[in-house]
Amino acid sequence: MGKFYISILLILMSFSMASAPAYTDNNTYHFTVKRGDSLSQYFSKLGLSNRLLANLLFANKNNKKLNQLNIGHKLTIRLHNNRRFKSLTYQLNRKTNLNIVLNGNYFSTILNRQSKQTPSDLSITVVSINHSFGADAQKAGIGFSTISLVVKELSWQLNFNTDLKKGDRFIIVNGFGEKPVAIIYQSIIKNKSIEAFAYKNKHGHINYFNRFGHSLNSSFLRAPLKYKRISSKFQLRRYHPILKTWRPHRAVDYAANYGTPVYSTANGVITTKGRKGALGKVIIIQHSFDYTTVYAHLSRYANNLYKGRKVKKGQIIGYVGSTGRSTGPHLHYELHYKGKRRNPLTHKLPAQKNISCANLQNFKTRVNKVLSNLELDYQSKHANWAD
């Protein structure tokens, strides 16, 4: 019985002697191995179970190298926001890192050889769509701020309410920063993908671009048609010519000939097509997570338009008319930003910026490093898992 208590005491002492992480950053814990340290001690300090450790060590023959850590070597453990294990990176030697990522219920092992072409310290989280992106991302341990960022950045290209199908997936690549270094959406059924790679400009602002350095958002046309004049501006107090009362007019009225083509001012998805009270025949387009435009008093619609149909910037969606509460042919145009009407003539619209030629090569080098890391991850899934 005495030997039993001595053994328990020694185990507790070994846990208390385990090195504290050198520093933490966004649920990422960095250790420098000291004499007597072990992976089980690190797991215990972070509240990770022995069962998880056992499954990790037996998942791949390379993982067993973690049974004996080398003094002075670096080890990084990353956790999800819900404190579940996410990934691990261990410095085997000067040239090689051992990377282990938990995807669902199985571990992916990657041996990264340090070179200019292969990045290290990147973690990959895969969100497979079963219900919705928000629900499935939370289940995968993605935080609310990252979920909002993904929706905002991809919503110019992707309708999160209608486009997602079961089996689609999002690949979110994180480094040491708070924001992902890459976001990739893959549609299995449609066999297409959307890529967004982070780039920090000289002012420290992070924006996302495709692999060629082009912005993902759509710039706006300043006006939705060729008009004669502006018959009524955006104003908080305007005398209504029909109602004979003073009322706000949170739109711009463009006077034009009957039948003049009306264009979508940016890429988007039609959310409403039909009659809508005083607006008459109307089309409403959702352009991104933040922007919506309204086109009212139309005489008729362009062919093959329906709710849920995607439209391009400059595409004809209808023709000027005088339906609804109107005194003559004109287009009533509204711009909504984050649910509030804005003045289309003065609101600062998002510009479709691209990375400058001077910085493009540096950006593409970073993109290639991320894609290389993803390729290694793919290879490990199809080779190392069988070991």
Rank of each mutant, 00 (worst) to 15 (best):
N257M: 08
G2Y: 02
A223T: 12
N303S: 12
N103G: 13
H240K: 06
L79M: 13
V173C: 05
Q352I: 00
K65Y: 06
R275L: 09
S40G: 13
A198K: 10
Q68T: 14
H382W: 03
D253E: 02
L345S: 04
F197S: 03
L111D: 14
W246V: 10
S326T: 07
Y5V: 04
S231D: 12
K312N: 15
H332W: 03
T109R: 10
K312P: 05
S187Y: 05
G134K: 02
R94Q: 14
V311Q: 06
Y42I: 13
I171W: 03
T32K: 10
R113W: 13
S193Y: 04
T89H: 12
L154H: 05
K353T: 04
P241A: 08
S356R: 01
N174G: 06
A358H: 02
W156K: 04
L371Q: 04
S264H: 00
I189T: 10
G204T: 09
K228W: 09
Q157T: 04
L216H: 08
S16P: 00
I183W: 02
T162S: 07
K340S: 02
K116F: 11
S322M: 11
F107I: 14
G167M: 06
L12F: 07
H214F: 08
T76I: 14
L102W: 11
G321W: 01
N70R: 12
K3F: 07
H214K: 13
D253M: 01
V262W: 00
K74N: 11
P21I: 10
K281P: 00
L57W: 06
K139Y: 01
K95T: 15
S123C: 15
A302D: 08
